[in-house]
Write a protein that binds this DNA or RNA. Structure first.
Ligand code: SF4
Ligand code: SF4
Lengths: 134, 134
DNA sequence: TCTAAAGTATACTAGATGGGTAAACAATAG
DNA sequence: CTATTGTTTACCCATCTAGTATACTTTAGA
């Protein structure tokens, strides 16, 4: 039920970038030091944020990362799903075939969990990174 | 971010018991067959529901399980936490010491996650097993 | 009282996931 | 050209997941 370490690091990294002057490129080393994230692990996580369209990267001398959108347009849900894949309270909510009982569409547990999941995703979507900038 | 298989089985088992005539003792074998749960795995899960005060058990001939409370007094949150322990969106929400950055109390990510978590728990608490009985 | 039928406790396992590290590579500013 | 930056792929070990196996305890009833 918890986000993993990589996701927490990703949230820290995005928040850090959101606080930089708009358009400023920050290298991985700096994010790593400021946010206390093992550099090699951070470097492995960043590409998933890039694929999700949350950050942009530049290689070579003077390279680094910048947000690809305004902080207000990046939600917690975006970051979580970029790193962990779709948020699902139970696997049958992604694929009915998961259920050993095969009652998925009519299962009342399934329906209740789907309801809770929708609310959870809405809550995660309700938090963005603009709310954290002074 | 998902409940595990044991928790899904526990929800099925509690729902099954909730649908039995009140006070009727059901043996593990029957729950296992009806809900398609490996019997030995079910037998391992049940004690956690007992410790949480959700079901009662009887041993020996004619033994089995009964709900310890009315279905309306058992929430999804109760069952989930009985099997998996406290619901936490991030480990720092259980223990500040988890954070490598040590900014926990003032961390805005932490605060946002705490907010989402509170809503999630409220939603899980909002579903009980009375709503599923005809 | 003996026994078969129930649940309990503990230990074990194969495979997947988590949280990284290492090494080779690719792009780019100067 | 070269030093600097990110990318890709492969690897690693510890923990968790989803069970199974074995031995044990309780209890109704013949
Ligand atoms: S029993 Fe219901 S909730 Fe559980 S896996 Fe099957 S459909 Fe999903
Ligand atoms: S950075 Fe914030 S959210 Fe992440 S572990 Fe630390 S306190 Fe928790």
């Amino acid at each position: 039920m918890t986000i993993n370490q990589a996701t927490d690091y990703a949230l820290r990294a995005v928040l850090y970038l959101a606080r930089q002057p708009q358009g400023e490129v920050t290298e991985a080393q700096v994010i790593s030091e400021q946010e206390v994230i093992p550099i090699r692990f951070l470097l492995k996580i960043m590409p998933s944020l890039i694929k999700a369209g949350i950050v942009k990267s530049f290689r070579g001398v003077g390279g680094g990362y910048v947000l690809a959108k305004a902080p207000g347009e990046i939600s917690f849900l975006d970051v979580v799903e970029a790193v962990e894949g779709p948020v699902a309270l139970n696997r049958c909510l992604i694929d009915y075939a998961f259920c050993s009982k095969k009652g998925a569409p009519n299962c009342q547990i399934h329906q209740a969990l789907a309801d809770v999941q929708a609310k959870l995703k809405a809550e995660l979507q309700g938090h963005n990174f603009a709310e954290f900038i002074n």
